[in-house]
Design a protein around this nucleic acid. Sequence first.
DNA 1: GCTGCTAACTAAATCGTTACAGCTCAATGG
DNA 2: CCATTGAGCTGTAACGATTTAGTTAGCAGC
Lengths: 349, 349
Amino acid sequence: MPPSRRITLKDLARELGVSTATVSNAFNRPDQLSPNLRERILGEARRLGYRGPDAKARSLRTGRTRIIAVVLAESLTYSINDAVASELLSGIAEVLDAHGHTLLLLSARQMQNQLPGGASMADGYIVYGLMPSQDLLEPLPPQSPLVAVDFDVEGRPSIHVDDEPACYAIARHALSRTTRRPGIINLRLTAEPCNGPIAPGRRLLSADQTITRSRLSGFYRALDEAGHDTAAVPMWNVEENTYEVCAPVIAALLDLPDDERPDLLLCMSDRIALTALTLAERRGLRVPEDLRITGFDGIAEGQYRAPRLTTVRQDSVEKGRIAARMILGLDEPRSQTLATELWLGDSCP
Amino acid sequence: MPPSRRITLKDLARELGVSTATVSNAFNRPDQLSPNLRERILGEARRLGYRGPDAKARSLRTGRTRIIAVVLAESLTYSINDAVASELLSGIAEVLDAHGHTLLLLSARQMQNQLPGGASMADGYIVYGLMPSQDLLEPLPPQSPLVAVDFDVEGRPSIHVDDEPACYAIARHALSRTTRRPGIINLRLTAEPCNGPIAPGRRLLSADQTITRSRLSGFYRALDEAGHDTAAVPMWNVEENTYEVCAPVIAALLDLPDDERPDLLLCMSDRIALTALTLAERRGLRVPEDLRITGFDGIAEGQYRAPRLTTVRQDSVEKGRIAARMILGLDEPRSQTLATELWLGDSCP
DNA sequence: GCTGCTAACTAAATCGTTACAGCTCAATGG
DNA sequence: CCATTGAGCTGTAACGATTTAGTTAGCAGC
């Protein structure tokens, strides 16, 4: 027995005495040949252990791979563990699966210069939450379809939620109870990395297009309306949406003397809010009596524990679905803004 | 100006008056041509907007795509949200990134008959946690490297943790306090789907190779040693490692009359244990005074809340790293079992 | 019997690279 | 001065499919 190199469509054709075109058709266009012959071909294929047309060759010829790449702003390690990113991926995967496509995971960090590995053969790119300053999109093939999620790319469709109105609404709700000292915990708002309190004069991210900035505007509008001096409202910043990074910042602010500690925390994500909740409990602070807390995102974890989190629910799964449908050309590619929902929990009733 | 079809390596070669082989070398083997010429080629490439060799064509020619597929037992939606699977993915991604490979996500569910999309062009497959009964591996290209994680595939390397000893150890610890009525919550142990109590005579998954089965053996060994009648220890089963699926089962068992309710719950995952913790608290049961709870996995969430979870810590990230290194051929492919660590928290001190 | 039409198939031209064998020419060694 | 080397480059055959433009054969219609 020879070392038996892999069987190709050509071998199959020779074996059966038909042309390669016909064998190809047997697999791809059943209507192009008699059912009879098709059966013979498929049978012989099975007999010889031919597993269907080679994907690499096919992709060269057709120009398509049926692979969609998802580009995540942060490292994969981080993104995969982030509940919101996970939901987004779920939505994307759901649609891709249903249409015979597969999902390639890619971190923006790994494309500093050039696309790694097979990333450049994706049929399209869904890009999630880059900072506007990052022009990491340069290495992406300029021709291929691209959909931006939670940020904007010039000339490309993007998907957002109504961050500003949502944050206005939740802050308005929170401020409807008397509040001595509201505080805000931001996610990645400053131009330079910073974990901790933001001094009043501190330079914030200039671009208006960051979702963090829109959310902050919403908070400010409500604070302003409620008669608070927004410039005097203390703010803290966290660089990453993880317990590990948030905890020290929040611990420090909770350990402030009673008359300096906020009695309301407007948090820019549920992860931040949940961390605050945990640390507050650990210090014997009662939520919501001593400290009220609001989040943003509506992740599942926030609803499983007592007190349930008061938050803004955004449908990240749907966001993923929409992005995927656009990339596959199932929906018209056009920018859109999804509605959110105010969820009243027990952390800020 | 013509519609300017995409620029190829050949165009570049013609333009410069060199051979395609040389242009190819300029990109792939700098040592094969003079630095001088290489600069000229790269310069011209930039000028013409040539973005380097086409990945699809290259993959056909070289036979490699630099894509590694990760096959997950459950749906992507579920797997991505599962803390343990996430950690595994993190470890895999870390190594793949470092070596210029990318990660393709694939659910076993979507390969019932045939590999979708570009999945069949992966250079290797890391398969995670399939049930032994599922022979979903059939559609995978038999030649390509494969590493199994948390289960066994005949003739292929696999990675495990020492489930049996670990569960023996944690159960032994738990039983060192007087225990009236221990209970066990299993994850996917029965042959037929079942959410709820497992009747004593119920047919369990036969194969020894499931991790769930090994863990159960460990529990039984310790129970036996402590003088409990293992056949009489009540067991419950949950079909999926999510709060939503676990909650009703656990709620039912916690609502048993005081003299039937377990005072120790040996849970097969942290997710189960955490759900039990939440529901117990909500009922005013004190942990660990009224109910002691142990988990398995050592996920981060278990350590952030009070009481901290007593559990077995397995390093899933490392598991991913090892799998990835084997698939890339950086390490010898050989089956191995990783050690675990007993973490004493407050849920079962 | 001729035309026209359709179903079923084939031959050959790509798709854009990389690998391999060879070729040329200047430098080196004896 | 000739043989040997090696650096630097070229030509061309794969890689394994899909697609386009035919070619046949069979049959219906007039």
